[in-house]
Write a protein that binds this DNA or RNA. Structure first.
Length: 444
RNA sequence: GGUCCCGUAGCCAAGUGGCUAAGGCAAUGGACUGCAACUCCGUGAUCACCGGUUCAAAUCCGGUCGGGACCUCCA
């Protein structure tokens, strides 16, 4: 299993810290609005990472947080005359719905920042005690100048950053690169701390929660490429200052989902909410997995349509094979290895082992589909079809694609035989009527 | 201004030093079919451009052009 590690910019062999276990953390959303389809990319991709590790036999401890305290939540709460908690709860619920829509699991630990306040405050206190942070007027800042390797993740150095024209001007800071650990708050939700009432800066929550939950460095830390700097860089700076490690052994960053060749983002206004996409979401999932995760994807309606069609083809092939076996009472037979199918499986696993190359894995999905379609038209190829169907199921499980197929009822089976008889007897009116009914039920 | 990424057929996309450059969509020819649908078989590439390194380059190096990202909240 090889993973591209953003920390070293190398493809590395994955070695877990604890045997047969993968501890992973993915930066979750700030819950002030619905997620847009670009936000769904890590939701889908890292779900596939989890599924693949589980397929390989690992126990995966998957954690993804909710930032439920933030300026944007306060703004939204004021706008809608609600409390921050009400806003956060509303969009956490909406997030879970969207995660389910795109076929990812919601069964993972999702800590909320407001539930980990004492850990976060204790974390900041330790940084202050070690002189890596300083307090001014109720704010606490991280002292970047004390961190000699600052910029290791994003490949920047302090001089380049300082010369940048866009560094925020803040007279309180010792250095413009210093970032907020604790922010004095006048309006909205605030918490007591040794520095007065306020709320934590964004960069501390993940690293404090990781320490609290996992008790030390983890295997994989994931998120979108835009989080690399400054968010993940700052996580590393804090944790290196305190614990002399890089938070995670493997850092993984997904590329963006663009629209009209521009980054889709809520602040640009060029976004589509996941909930508003309103298409076959399995097609959307296939679309996002059709490109290697580190490369950008450009979203267009035509391209999405393309993958929805592709998904329907894969699903149709699988279900036809499944029903053919069901009708022949072959679904519960034992599965025999078929050489052509074994080759496809091997190639699929090799693609996944190579840094989760889902694009190549999907090619193997198409290969198993072609093989299946060839066998469907031949007589008595039940062993081949059964092996193919089981392989389909494995691939679908790893990629999180769900054809939602179940065994035929007795009534449907007899309808199917009636249709077959009608065709044989050249009763085409009847046959066409039954064909329509069966195809509406997804059988044909 | 600084840092970095990308440019492969009409479209999407894999491949990142070595046989005739995967795969899908679209197009087109054929097969199958009661008619369809579905499906199967066949058909397509001076790898942005220029120069260099090498026995060998889409792949490495330099340059040109084009597109994009990050340096500010962002997946």
């Amino acid at each position: 299993m090889k993973i591209y590690n953003t920390l070293t910019n190398k493809l590395e062999t994955f070695k877990p810290i604890h045997k047969n276990t993968v501890n992973m953390y993915v930066c979750g959303p700030t819950v002030y609005n619905y997620i847009q389809i670009g936000n769904a990319r890590p939701v889908i991709f890292f779900d596939v990472v989890r599924r693949y590790f589980e397929h390989l036999g690992y126990t995966v401890n998957f954690v993804s947080n909710f930032t439920d305290i933030d300026d944007k939540i306060i703004t939204k709460a004021l706008e809608e005359e609600k409390t921050e908690m009400e806003i956060a709860n509303q969009f956490i619920e909406a997030f879970h719905k969207d995660v389910e829509r795109v076929g990812s699991s919601t069964k993972y630990l999702a800590p909320r920042v407001t539930e980990y306040m004492s850990s976060i405050i204790a974390y900041i206190e330790r940084l202050v005690k070690k002189d890596f942070a300083y307090q001014i007027d109720g704010d606490v800042y991280f002292r970047v100048s004390k961190m000699k390797d600052y910029g290791i993740l994003s490949g920047r150095n302090v001089e380049d950053l300082t010369s940048g024209a866009r560094v925020e001007i803040n007279d309180k800071k010792e250095n413009p690169l210093d970032f907020t650990l604790w922010k004095k708050t006048d309006v909205g939700l605030k918490f007591p701390s040794p520095w007065g009432e306020g709320r934590p800066g964004w960069h501390t929550e993940c690293v404090a929660m990781i320490e609290d939950i996992f008790g030390g460095p983890i295997d994989i830390h994931g998120g979108g490429a835009d989080l690399m700097f400054p968010h993940h860089e700052n996580e590393i700076a804090q944790n290196h200052a305190l614990n002399h490690n890089f938070v995670a052994n493997y850092w993984m960053h997904n590329g963006f989902l663009n629209i009209n060749d521009q980054k889709m983002s809520k602040s640009e206004g060029n976004y589509i909410f996941v909930k508003d996409l309103d298409v076959d979401y399995m097609g959307f999932r296939l679309f996002t997995l059709s490109t290697y995760y580190r490369s950008p994807i450009n979203f267009t309606d035509a391209l999405l349509e393309n993958y929805i069609t592709e998904w329907q083809k894969l699903k149709r092939t699988y279900t036809q094979a499944f029903y053919k076996l069901d009708l022949a009472e072959q679904l519960d037979e034992s599965v025999l290895p078929i050489e052509a199918v074994e080759t496809i499986k091997t190639n699929f696993m090799a693609a996944m082992d190579n840094d989760f190359n889902t694009a190549n894995a999907i090619t193997e999905l198409q290969n198993i589909a072609k093989y299946t379609n060839q066998k469907i038209r031949q007589k008595d190829q039940y062993s081949e079809l059964l092996a193919a169907v089981k392989t389909f199921e494995t691939f679908f499980a790893i990629l999180g694609l769900d054809p939602k197929t179940s065994r035929m009822s007795k009534a449907i089976k007899s309808m199917y035989y009636e249709w077959a008889d009608a065709r044989k007897n050249k009763e085409y009116d009847k046959a066409d009527r039954l064909r329509e009914a069966l195809s509406q039920k997804g059988i044909l």
